[in-house]
């Protein structure tokens, strides 16, 4: 096992990979160091995130992180989603990520914040 069973599983079979028809918020960003690219699409309702999908051209860590984040963001109030941090993801990923790869974990968080900011949902 290279990283963790969660990362392998989410990389091979992501649950929230794809497009969201009629998304309310879309944001995409890249990590200039390694070229990871993540795009997050959100459906918003009643001050919360009703649904989330991601797309990406990225490494296994980043793919797994984005997939988990989409799962964790769904059903959360915007404020709660914005409060999600690297530790929440690292706990779920269950792997020791070395410092040089930590941006692979945090890129999806940055993109989620960007998506919420783009529609004025983030204060």
């Amino acid at each position: 096992m290279l990283y963790s069973s969660v990362i392998s599983e989410r990389f091979r079979h992501p649950r929230f990979f794809g497009d969201l028809d009629g998304a309310d918020a879309v944001f995409e960003d890249v990590n200039p160091l390694c070229g990871d690219r993540v795009r997050i699409q959100l459906k918003l309702a009643n001050g919360g995130i009703a649904d989330a999908r991601f797309k990406g051209d990225s490494c296994a860590i980043c793919m797994a992180s984005a997939d988990l984040l989409a799962e964790m963001a769904r059903g959360r109030a915007v404020d709660e989603a914005l409060a999600l941090g690297p530790d929440d993801l690292l706990t779920r990923l269950g792997a020791t990520i070395r410092p040089s790869r930590i941006t692979c974990v945090t890129l999806p968080l940055q993109v989620l914040k960007g998506a919420l900011a783009a529609v004025g949902a983030a204060r």
Binding site: L2, Y3, D36, S58, C59, A60, C104
Partner: peptide, 13 residues
């Protein structure tokens, strides 16, 4: 099927 950084990490192991 593998990202270059994953390949590098695997080889590093």
């Amino acid at each position: 099927g593998l990202h270059p950084h994953d390949v590098a990490h695997l080889l590093d192991q």
